[in-house]
Each structure stands twice: as structure tokens, then as C-alpha cells.
Write a protein that binds this DNA or RNA. Structure first.
Lengths: 113, 113
DNA sequence: TCGGTACTTTACCAACTGGTTAATTAACCA
DNA sequence: TGGTTAATTAACCAGTTGGTAAAGTACCGA
């Protein structure tokens, strides 16, 4: 079958949706320290294995992780390209939130004698 | 009533969920250029007004916009603090995706005679 | 006071999400 | 071969999401 062929917008939709869950963000944080199997990833959570499997499927579909196979194990690794896209998207708005400090700077300048 | 009292994780959940929709991201992009009424925000989209109202409610609940009132109009403005939180969250992973280039650098160094 | 404009609320719908338990697949090991 | 371990798939469920059409609210202006 052909590779999904998503638009940039659709890829951002999937990435943001995948990140909108603290279990999945915690899994990414764990993977930032290195590869891990599904069981190791599941251990910190009070969730069934199928629940973790589903979270991993969401992360994989969003391109945030990739999965290998070693015997019965499915080692997961972080693939951070979508995070880079999020950073790029977000940086566009940096001037907007920094304007607040600019205005604060103006204010501080104003009250100087 | 007391302000929602969400954890940092819950606020990130809401922010990422709000951003996981291209209509809402387009609305934010529009608001980055300045305040706008609901009708003005709806104009570029082939969606009913209630649909836009719902998107704005999601953005407001996530703290990404705030809404005023001027006669019949509800002017919306961008409130970028949650975007700053997203940037902070994302920057944590920057070394991970930049490691790719580091490794590329190692590789290029290796193949030098 | 009455009509129009701007927007929200309500009621409804189909599709998706996040969880469960039970069953299945696949690989190792004794 | 048969049992154990690792993980996925299937079937199900309640709650949320993204959309609609229709009704309601609120303000302005003639």
C-alpha cells in the first residue's frame, strides 16, 4: 500500500493529538533516555498492556516512535522529527508572547524618572 | 466559582488537544495579526457559525484566546501563554533531534581521510 | 417597538478515544 | 513437544469530538 501521503496540516493534527495525553508524553520522556520494550514502558503506569499497545500505536502513527523486533520484544525508539515540526510551528508565535515582555519593558522605561 | 485548578499535565493535555485541529490553528494564525470578531474568524471557512463557536470555546478553555464583548460582537484575542508552555515542553527534546545532526557530523568526520 | 445582525445554545448524529477483558500470535526454552 | 513470556488483536463500552439545523439571546438603529 502507498505511504499515507498526508498534508503538513494532517501531520500536525496527528502529532498534536498524539501529544495531547500525559501517558504518551511520559512514554516519550522515557524514550528520550533510550530505547525500551513495551513491558518496560508499561511498568510505571497502572494500565493494562493493551492500553499501552494502543498508546504506542498512536505514537507510531504520528511518527514519534519507531518499533523494532528482537525475539519476543518490540524495542521502541524516539523519532523526534515531528517534535521538530512542532517546535517550528510554535516558534512562529514566539514574538507574540515576547511582546508581553516588550510592553513590560516599555512600562518599566516609562516609570523611570 | 474557583478557577479550574488544573495540573500542568492537564493544561498541556488541553493545549495540545486544542492545537490538534487545523481550523483552530488557522484561527490562531489569524489572531496573531490582531483581534477579530467571530464572524470575521468564520469567514475563511466553509463551516457553520455554531461550528466556529465550538472551536472558539475549545481555544478559550485551553487559555489560547480570550473573548471580550462590544455591542453584539465578541472580539477574540490571542493569549499566548499556553504556546509558551508548549515551546518549553518541546525544547526539552531539541537535543534529541539535533543528535541526528551530531551523528551526521561524526559520520562526516569519520569519512575524512 | 420592531426588525436585523451577531453570536450562542440546544438537540442531535456519526466517528473517534481511552480504557477494559479475553483470545491470539510469536518466539524462546527445557 | 509443550509451557512461559511478550505483545497484539478483537470485541466491547462510555465519554468526547466535530459537525449539523433550529431555536434562543442580546444589542443596535430606524
Amino acid at each position: 500500500m502507498p505511504t499515507a501521503e498526508l498534508t503538513e496540516d494532517e501531520r500536525l493534527d496527528e502529532t498534536f493529538a498524539a501529544l495531547a495525553n500525559s501517558t504518551r508524553r511520559a512514554i516519550l520522556a522515557r524514550l528520550a533516555t533510550g530505547e525500551a520494550n513495551v513491558g518496560e514502558l508499561a511498568e510505571p503506569f497502572d494500565l493494562s498492556m493493551p492500553a499501552i499497545s494502543k498508546h504506542l500505536a498512536v505514537l507510531e502513527r504520528a511518527g514519534l516512535i519507531s518499533r523494532g523486533q528482537r525475539a519476543q520484544y518490540r524495542p521502541c525508539t524516539l523519532t523526534p522529527e515531528p517534535l521538530e515540526a512542532v517546535a517550528t510551528w510554535t516558534e512562529y508565535y514566539r514574538p507574540v508572547w515576547e511582546a508581553r515582555f516588550d510592553r513590560l519593558g516599555d512600562y518599566l522605561a516609562d516609570i523611570q524618572p
